[in-house]
C-alpha cells in the first residue's frame, strides 16, 4: 500500500527509487528525504498521443511526477481523501478528483457514450462530468478527493445501486452505468422531488459515494 492515512484530509505516501508516482500539481504539503517534483507536461502517462487524447477529452489536469526516496504528504483544498487499492481492476474517476496515484497504474480515457448510447452522452451533460472519464488500471493505490467523507457501496448482479449524479465519486470493477430518469409531469411543472436523474450502476464492483451533493 502506497498511501497511509494521516487524517481524513491528509495522506502520506512512501516514495522509493524506481517507482514514480503522479500527483495533482501543488498537492504536496510536506516531504521528508530526497524527493523531486517535476511537472508532467503530457499530464500523466503515455506519450504525446495520450496527451492529445486527454486534451481533446477535456480530462487533462496538471499533474506532476514525484520521484526519489522519502515520504510525501498530500492534501488539497481541505477535501476529504479516500484511498482505493486496485488489484488488477479498473477505477473510473473524474480527472479533477484525482489527488495522487501510483505510477504502476495504466492511465487512460474512456468515452462515456460507449456505455448506454445516447443516454451515456446525456449522462455527461446532466452530471457536468463531460463525455469522457479517466480510467486507472493495474495494481497500485489511488487517492481520490471528495467533499465530505466517502462511503463504499457494493454492486452485485441483480442488485443495482442508484446514485445521485452530484454525489457520485468513482466506481471500480465490471460495472455498467447508465442514466436513469424519473421525469414525470411534476418535474415539468417545477414541482419535482429533486431526484429526477439518477445513475444506475449494475454488474459487479464497488461504487464510491460522497456525503454531499457539491462538486469539488
Amino acid at each position: 500500500m502506497a498511501f497511509t492515512r494521516v487524517n481524513s484530509k491528509l495522506v502520506e505516501a512512501r516514495v522509493v527509487p524506481g517507482r514514480r508516482m503522479f500527483s495533482q500539481r501543488g498537492a504536496m504539503l510536506a516531504y521528508r528525504g530526497a524527493v523531486t517534483f517535476t511537472p508532467s507536461i503530457t499530464g500523466g502517462q503515455g506519450g504525446v498521443m495520450s496527451m492529445i487524447g486527454r486534451r481533446v477529452a477535456n480530462e487533462a489536469t496538471p499533474l506532476m511526477i514525484v520521484e526519489g526516496d522519502g515520504l510525501v504528504m498530500f492534501g488539497h483544498g481541505g477535501h476529504h481523501i479516500h484511498t482505493v487499492d486496485l488489484t488488477g481492476e479498473t477505477l473510473y474517476v473524474e480527472a479533477d478528483r484525482l489527488l495522487a496515484f501510483d505510477g504502476s497504474l495504466a492511465q487512460g480515457t474512456m468515452f462515456m457514450g460507449s456505455q448506454g448510447g445516447v443516454m451515456g452522452v446525456m449522462r455527461g451533460q446532466v452530471t457536468g462530468q463531460g463525455l469522457f472519464t479517466t480510467t486507472l488500471q493495474g495494481k497500485g493505490s489511488v487517492a481520490v478527493m471528495a467533499h465530505g467523507g466517502v462511503f463504499e457501496l457494493p454492486v452485485t448482479p441483480g442488485r443495482p445501486v442508484h446514485v445521485d449524479p452530484q454525489a457520485y465519486v468513482a466506481h471500480r470493477g465490471e460495472v455498467r452505468n447508465k442514466l436513469a430518469t424519473a421525469v414525470g409531469w411534476r418535474e415539468m411543472v417545477g414541482r419535482g422531488s429533486g431526484e429526477a436523474f439518477q445513475l444506475e450502476l449494475s454488474g459487479q464492483g464497488t461504487v464510491y459515494v460522497q456525503a454531499s451533493e457539491e462538486k469539488l
Binding site: 443495482p160 445501486v161 445521485d164 460522497q210 451533493e213
Partner: peptide, 8 residues
C-alpha cells in the same frame, strides 16, 4: 428534498 445520495 434532494438529500438522497444513493439507493438500492
Amino acid at each position: 428534498k434532494g438529500a438522497m445520495v444513493a439507493y438500492d
